[in-house]
Amino acid sequence: MNTPATADAPIDDFSQCHAGIFRKLDMLGELPALLQPAARAREVAEKALDFFREAIFEHHLDEERELFPAVIESAEAGEEREQVKAMARRLTDEHRELERLWKSLESGLKKVAKGQFSDVIDVATIEALVSRYRAHAEFEEQAFLPLSQQILGRNANHMAALGMSLHMRHARGPLNAYV
Score class of each variant (00 low, 15 high):
Gln16His: 14
Gln16Val: 04
Gly20Glu: 09
Gly20Asn: 10
Phe22Gln: 15
Asp26Val: 06
Gly29Pro: 02
Gly29His: 00
Glu30Gly: 06
Pro32Arg: 07
Ala33Cys: 01
Leu35Glu: 04
Pro37Arg: 11
Pro37Tyr: 14
Ala39His: 01
Arg42Gln: 14
Ala48Tyr: 05
Leu49Gln: 01
Leu49Arg: 01
His59Gly: 10
His60Met: 12
Arg65Gly: 09
Leu67Gln: 09
Val71Phe: 12
Ser74Thr: 09
Gly78Gln: 06
Gly78Ser: 06
Gly78Val: 02
Glu79Thr: 12
Lys85Pro: 04
Met87Thr: 12
Ala88Lys: 09
Thr92Cys: 00
Glu94Trp: 03
Glu94Asn: 07
His95Thr: 06
Lys103Trp: 12
Leu105Ile: 04
Glu106Phe: 05
Glu106Asn: 05
Ser107Val: 15
Ser107Tyr: 01
Gly108Phe: 01
Lys111Asp: 14
Lys114Gln: 13
Gly115Pro: 05
Asp119Thr: 00
Ile121Gln: 03
Val123Tyr: 00
Val123Met: 02
Ala124Ser: 14
Ala128Gly: 01
Ala128Met: 05
Leu129Trp: 08
Val130Ala: 09
Ala135Tyr: 03
Ala135Trp: 03
Glu138Pro: 03
Glu140Phe: 04
Glu140Asn: 00
Ala143Glu: 15
Phe144Ile: 00
Leu145Thr: 06
Leu147Cys: 04
Ile151Ser: 05
Gly153Leu: 04
Asn157Trp: 07
Ser165Phe: 10
Leu166Glu: 09
His167Pro: 02
Met168Phe: 11
Met168Ile: 08
His170Tyr: 12
Ala171Phe: 13
Ala177Ile: 14
